[in-house]
Design a binder for these strands. Structure first.
Length: 567
RNA sequence: GCCCGUGUAGCUCAGUGGUAGAGCAGCGCAUUCGUAAUGCGCGGGUCGGCGGUUCAAAUCCGCCCAUGGGCUCCA
């Protein structure tokens, strides 16, 4: 599918949508209607939201417009003329005011005309198959102080098969949704009545988490990090010192009063690592200092943004802080990027997007420091030959950063890895070290997370693998199924041999073998061992792989050797 | 936080003003089985919460809570 063509295609589709809406509801005011990654939307201003009935009518209206096969015509007019055309479209007029050029373009199809840069396809008849997918509210220009618009989403394709395929993709995505799969596979649960956005890790999910965390710690220690542990709460004064009570107040849980003290649940780990740093005078010889912690933080997120494991109120960051000199930034960032690609690759993610965010309007630190740090980050990205996009002015106020985003099943992007230079905290906590010449200097502080949050990463993992975790991560790796109760002792003997090497279960239920196989398959256990008279006689086992079926008959030693390679 | 939709058994859902339902799961009994659901039986619910309308509310109305899709925000 030609990307440029589909953009025009969807753009015209959105105009057809707008035309249908205008015809049915002449009082509706037009907002904007662009093509998006998968389809299109149009924003309308209307007091009443669109009902499912309205959507049905709009859909019919669109079919009419398509059937009429109206030519799409580009018209260039002066700004003054444009104002006249748009006299009843306040939102369009607002857009017009923002346009610098003296001549603007409109696109017309039949009796519908819209201020639009284009490009479009040549006639409405080219839109063959479309579907209105959903409606939602949105703020005009994304500004929550502005009008609330009614947004209608849709998708369209030249071929019916393409539309069907896309709708199938949406179905498939639903099946992969970690919010359904997680509880179904007994991995985790959420209990809104006892606090929304808080995750309960069940035994099976916890095993996966333990494997991830143990692996994470080992790799970090091998890569020159030291592990630290810090408290979950601290006196409010710590957060005043760090500045969080100012710039992060919105996201912090309300402080707790205990006697004459006030405690704050931590939204970040950094101030704690700083406290450790300040317990003694550091030397340039100590650098780089790399402290890592799987630190659980709590952030008060607005109700509407919570989303399964991907956006929660309590989560564990795979956090680390690197203290170094300005000259060491680049090398340290290269090392972090190495770790990022190692970890993400290990978990099966090879596609991700990298962003470099530069200095925003409001910032702390010196422009010179920002400049140097930003260049160091950029050089590191170049050295690693990582493609990246620059987000100008999107940096946090305290320093430039690199963000790496991976995609969930619905192609939503979620930030995992982040590498941030911080000019704020070293200043506020008066961090220092003794340099070669004996003078005191302020170190550079780099915050970084690779998986981001264990919860979010787990959610993305579930969707990525559709719950079929690779062998080394699977909560239950092998299930032994005796054909009848008679074979239970032999199954237990085999289980005993496998137990020291793998996470196994024996299905001792009084059920038919078909049922046991079905359940093991549905629970996505990677390997199934089946034991009956034949196996018992020859002292072998029958091996079946999840999703693939029978692999054959083997001895226990063979299985142990074979599967240990997959660990 | 904002807009719309949704909330009934552990799960998936039916039930539009008149005695709360199904399938799956759970429990009991029978069955001892060869590669994706054995049969029979039994329990199980303040119908999200609070208030209102009504002789009567799962059903109509209001508020609150939660959740879904978006917006804004973000690890």
């Amino acid at each position: 599918m030609d990307k440029k063509y589909m953009e025009r295609y969807w753009h015209t589709s959105s105009h057809i949508l707008a035309q249908a809406v205008k015809k049915l509801f002449p009082d509706v005011k037009l907002g904007t209607g662009p093509a998006i990654e998968n389809g299109f939307y149009y924003d309308f201003y209307r007091e009443e939201p669109f009902t499912p009935d309205d959507i049905e009518k709009i859909s019919k209206g669109m079919e009419d417009i398509i059937r009429q096969n109206l030519p799409v015509e580009k018209i260039s007019v002066s700004k003054d003329e444009a104002k006249k055309i748009l006299k009843d479209e306040p939102f369009k007029l607002e857009i017009l005011e923002g346009i610098k050029e003296e001549t603007v373009t409109f696109y017309r199809q039949g009796d519908f005309i819209d201020l639009c840069e284009g490009p479009h396809i040549s006639s409405t008849g080219e839109i063959k198959h479309f579907k209105i997918l959903s409606t939602a509210a949105s703020y005009w220009r994304g500004d929550e102080t502005r009008e609330s618009m009614q947004r209608i989403y849709g998708v369209s394709f030249p071929e019916k098969a393409q539309l069907d395929q896309y709708l199938k993709f949406l179905e498939e995505a639903k099946e992969r949704d970690h919010r359904t799969l997680g509880p179904k596979l007994d991995l985790f649960s959420i209990h809104p009545e006892f606090g929304s956005g808080l995750i309960y890790w069940h035994p099976k999910g916890s095993i996966v988490r333990k494997i991830i965390e143990d692996f994470w710690k080992d790799v970090h220690i091998k890569n020159g990090y030291q592990i630290v542990y810090t408290p979950h709460i601290a006196d409010l004064s710590l957060w005043e010192r760090s500045g969080h009570t100012g710039f992060y107040k919105e996201n912090m849980f309300t402080p707790m009063e205990m006697g004459n003290k006030v405690f704050q649940l931590k939204p970040m780990n950094c101030p704690f690592h700083i406290i450790i740093y300040n317990t003694k005078l550091r030397s340039y010889r100590d650098f780089p200092i790399r402290w890592a912690e799987l630190g659980t933080v709590y952030r008060y997120e607005k109700q509407g943004v919570l989303h399964g494991l991907l956006r929660v109120r309590g989560f564990t960051q795979d956090d680390a802080h690197i203290f170094c000199t300005e000259e060491q930034i680049e090398e340290e960032v290269v090392k972090v990027l190495d770790l990022v690609s190692f970890f993400l690759g290990k978990f099966g993610f090879t596609e991700y997007k990298t962003f470099l965010s530069t200095r925003p309007e409001k910032y702390v630190g010196s422009p010179d420091g920002w400049e140097k740090a930003t260049i160091a980050l950029e050089n590191a990205l170049k050295k690693k030959e990582m493609g990246y996009e620059i987000d100008p002015g999107e940096g946090v106020f305290y320093g430039p950063k690199i963000d790496i985003k991976i995609r969930d099943c619905l192609k939503r992007e979620w930030q995992c890895s982040t590498i941030q230079v911080d000019f704020n905290i070293p200043e506020r906590f008066a961090l220092k070290y003794t340099d070669k010449d004996g003078s005191f200097k302020t170190p550079i502080l780099i915050h970084r997370a690779i998986l981001g949050s264990i919860e979010r990463f787990f959610g993305v993992l579930i969707e990525h693998y559709k719950g079929n975790f690779p062998f080394w991560l699977a909560p239950e790796q092998i299930r032994v199924l005796p054909i009848s109760e008679r074979h239970l002792p032999y199954a237990e003997k085999i289980g005993g041999l496998l137990e020291p090497h793998f996470r196994i279960q024996i299905d001792t239920r009084n059920e038919k073998i078909n049922r046991k196989i079905r359940d093991a398959e549905e629970e996505k256990v990677p390997y199934i061992i089946i034991i009956g008279d034949k196996e018992e006689e020859k002292n072998t086992i029958a091996l079946r792989k999840h999703g693939e079926g029978m692999l054959g008959t083997f001895t226990t030693d063979e299985i142990i050797r074979k599967l240990k390679e997959c660990q």
